[in-house]
């Protein structure tokens, strides 16, 4: 079993590794700039942004937040298990992590269908341009995250899969939580 102790207090070894944290910071900055641009434009058109915000389904957004938080919770438990029992400790909670991530995508797809049926697609107005751009960009990250988690799960038997790989994939998955925790309040509740 490939198990070694990583000193996370070293500046070059944050949990998941320095490369994934550089990616996380870049993603956070990218989404941050887009959200600030949206709020700046919302200040110029407050009525349009408020009316558009009211046409979003807050209950869907809230349930999706709970799905992602629950998925992140089981991911954090998976990493704890891995640190205690080695990489095969991942088998216990990772399927539940993937399941809740899939629930998020299912509900988001239904919400998209609802919006398209109501004619609130991309190009409807400035608010919905931001809504589609930001949420679709986030959904792409969730899909990539799920593919990474499934490939880590399927590759557990391989010697080449290390604890660092598992921690890096967990960090990427939690990044999807972080981004959604900024998107949900600013899109669904702020204006």
């Amino acid at each position: 079993m490939n198990q070694k102790v990583i000193n996370h207090k070293n500046v070059y070894y944050p949990p998941g590794g320095i490369l994934i944290w550089i990616i996380i910071l870049l993603e956070l900055v990218t989404f941050g700039i887009a959200l600030i641009a949206m709020i700046y434009e919302g200040k110029a058109e407050p009525d349009q942004f408020h009316d558009s915000r009211l046409s979003l389904n807050v209950t869907c957004g809230m349930i999706n937040t709970v799905f992602l938080l629950t998925s992140g919770f089981f991911m954090a438990l998976s990493v704890k298990e891995v640190n205690m029992k080695g990489k095969h400790g991942l088998k216990k909670y990772l399927p539940v992590t993937i399941l809740f991530g899939s629930f998020f995508l299912l509900l988001k797809s239904w919400e998209y269908y609802e919006k398209i049926e109501a004619g609130l697609s991309m190009g409807h107005n400035t608010f919905f341009n931001y809504y589609w751009m930001l949420t679709l960009f986030h959904v792409i990250h969730v899909i990539v995250g799920l593919v990474i988690l499934i490939s880590v799960y399927l590759g557990l038997k391989k010697e080449s899969t290390t604890i660092e790989d598992i921690e890096a994939s967990a960090a990427f998955w939690h990044m999807c939580d972080l981004i959604w925790l900024l998107l949900f309040p600013l899109l669904y509740l702020f204006f």
Partner: peptide, 18 residues
Amino acid sequence: FLGVAFQFMELKKAHLFW
């Protein structure tokens, strides 16, 4: 955001820089 970063992502264990 801080709850997820520090507890779930274990940033609390990381170097002060992060």
